[in-house]
């Protein structure tokens, strides 16, 4: 049984300390949703919805609207939502055409969608983290030779692809710190096929 289509969530419990648990139901037409990130207050949750036939869509949930599929660009439906700024007004994710063209985008609260200017040499790209103020983003791109590189975008300087550390061909960033200053993830090397962790900062580079 699924509750009200008007507000696609319901409060399961509250208590005297004001703590609430709410089930987040998927957008209409989808079977499940996987939350990925949330604003400071918890009033904005973003993630991925899935349906039959390997259908995926980026969604945003708020208490007022429930889960809604985010808008895409022409020919590029919204596919993933990875991160949201602390105030909930900026969302990082990607849009993807049925032919596999992918773009990393920022959805803004005013309804605008900003496409990040990532190198066209990447055959696959993904955004993984957004700083709390929404001005720094990070992700990775796959080159035609299957090497994987991390990238970092700042509102001020645009996209910068980070160099591959010596001896590696795969750098997977997994988290961006809240202030946007450091990226953590793992690298694959000849001696560590399962991955070795790294942290990157502007000051120290890879360590």
């Amino acid at each position: 049984m699924r509750f009200t289509p008007i507000i696609a969530s319901f409060v399961l419990a509250t208590c005297s300390h004001g703590q609430h648990i709410v089930e987040i139901l998927p957008p209409d037409g989808f079977e499940a949703c996987s939350p990925r990130d949330l604003s400071t207050s918890g009033d904005v949750v973003v993630g991925n919805a899935s349906g039959t036939g390997s259908r995926f869509a980026a969604f945003r949930w708020t208490p007022d609207t429930g889960s809604e599929v985010l808008p895409g660009l022409p020919g590029l439906p919204a596919k993933w939502a990875s991160a949201v700024s602390a105030d909930g007004r900026t969302i990082l994710g990607s849009v993807e055409s049925e032919f596999g063209e992918v773009a990393v985008v920022l959805w803004q609260a005013d309804g605008s969608i900003e496409r990040l200017d990532l190198p066209t040499s990447f055959v696959r790209i993904s955004g993984i983290g957004l700083s709390e103020d929404g001005t720094v983003a990070a992700g990775f791109g796959v080159d035609a030779d299957d090497s994987v590189r991390a990238w970092r975008w700042t509102r001020q300087d645009g996209v910068r692809v980070l160099p591959l550390p010596a001896g590696t061909s795969v750098v997977i960033p997994l988290a961006l710190s809240g202030d946007g200053s450091s990226i953590t993830g793992f690298v694959r090397t000849a001696t560590s096929a399962l991955g070795a962790p790294f942290r990157w900062t502007e000051q120290s580079g890879f360590e």
């Binding site: 709390e132 997994l174 988290a175 961006l176 710190s177 809240g178 202030d179 200053s181 450091s182 953590t184 993830g185 793992f186 560590s192 096929a193 399962l194 991955g195 070795a196 962790p197 942290r199 900062t201």
Partner: peptide, 20 residues
């Protein structure tokens, strides 16, 4: 045999994840 970070604190000074 391997380590995979999964999340970092605001400053990046505390990292959590899995090891294999």
């Amino acid at each position: 045999e391997g380590v995979q970070p999964r999340a970092a604190s605001f400053s990046g000074n505390l990292i959590v994840g899995d090891w294999f």
